[in-house]
């Protein structure tokens, strides 16, 4: 958010910002991995995939991992290439939303 604000207000850039999004992705991926390793060290006898949070993190990881290179290259896209490759983003976004939906459903159940 801070990076986006900086980009918008200081650099006056309104288009998709590759650098910001990539840094965001790296940060979120790091947090997700940190969460997973914390869960691994947890002494609770509950399988990780039985927890609602896991599915949210899984969805985020799949989305960000799938789009990581796309975000890095985003500044260099021409219109044709973007149209060709943006389906990766759409597909991983659908997957992310499905996993998030599952997370919400399973947290309601528990």
């Amino acid at each position: 958010m801070l990076l986006s604000a900086l980009t918008y207000f200081i650099f006056r850039q309104e288009a998709f910002d590759s650098l910001n999004t990539t840094i965001e992705s790296i940060l979120i991926i790091s947090f997700c991995i940190f969460f997973l390793f914390e869960e691994l060290n947890n002494v609770e006898v509950v399988f990780i995939y039985q927890k609602a949070n896991f599915w949210f993190v899984f969805g985020m990881l799949v989305y960000l991992a799938g789009n990581f290179f796309l975000f890095i290259q985003a500044d260099e896209f021409s219109k044709e290439i973007r149209d060709g490759f943006w389906s990766i983003n759409l597909f991983s976004n659908i997957l992310k939303k499905l996993f998030v939906r599952y997370c919400i459903l399973s947290s309601k159940r528990s």
């Binding site: 799949v62 991992a65 799938g66 789009n67 990581f68 490759f85």
Partner: peptide, 12 residues
Amino acid sequence: LLFGTIGMLVLT
């Protein structure tokens, strides 16, 4: 782009 994306997904 292709191999990077596939690699990241496989890693994840």
